[in-house]
């Protein structure tokens, strides 16, 4: 799938570079992109360490089990397999909470840990399970209560009413999350009934 995304990016780049006459810029862009992947990984490394460590502390302390029990009625509907087996459900709960609470950089490590846990119990290891699809589609809908980075950018750009966007963003992203869940779960159901 990464291969397909890359091919699309490459072809689009070539065609538009031909149209805009910027073919000569592409080769520098390739090197720059590869270097940026490394700087990105390194700059995120500390946060990956911190959050993965914090997560395992939260698990050991039992805080997470309690949080999970609280959220179980919702989680059981959305992630039936993970909720039943318990594999990865705590990580899913943490990832969703982190997204909601605006700690977006913690949501990714939590979700990745959840994917690893779910993959360990996956009967068909090259095919995504229902719960994996739901988690990914939900993470692609950016539901959060306070878009902190965006507000900082608006402030920096000199906005007089930087926070005016908070309510519309909340409404739109909440609608997005509902749509994401519906589409993800409907897609899973279609397969089960065998249509």
């Amino acid at each position: 799938m990464v291969g397909r995304i890359f091919s699309v990016l490459c072809i689009l780049s070539f065609v538009s570079a031909l149209c805009t006459g910027r073919l000569s810029l592409l080769s520098d862009a390739v090197l720059e992109g590869a270097a940026r992947a490394v700087t990105l990984t390194l700059s995120l490394l500390g946060m990956m360490c911190l959050w993965c460590g914090v997560l395992s502390l939260l698990q050991k302390s039992g805080v997470l089990t309690r949080l999970c029990r609280l959220l179980m009625p919702i989680l059981r509907r959305l992630f039936p397999t993970a909720a039943e087996t318990g594999e990865g459900i705590e990580e899913i709960a943490m990832s969703i909470s982190a997204n909601l609470l605006g700690v977006g950089n913690a949501a990714t490590p939590f979700a990745l840990l959840a994917m690893e846990k779910m993959q360990a119990k996956n009967p068909e290891p090259d095919r995504a399970t229902d719960d994996m699809v739901t988690l990914t589609v939900l993470s692609c809908a950016s539901l959060n209560l306070l878009p902190t980075t965006l507000l900082a950018m608006r402030h920096a750009a000199g906005s007089d009413r930087a926070t005016a966007v908070v309510l519309p963003i909340l409404l739109v992203s909440a609608a997005g999350a509902v749509i994401a869940l519906l589409l993800a779960r409907l897609g899973c159901r279609r397969r089960r009934t065998g249509c």
Binding site: L9, S16, A17, C19, L26, G33, A34, R36
Partner: peptide, 16 residues
Amino acid sequence: LVLLMVGVSMLSASGF
């Protein structure tokens, strides 16, 4: 990430 970032970097440079 290397593969993705190379693609994205090309796309932005190409004037897409």
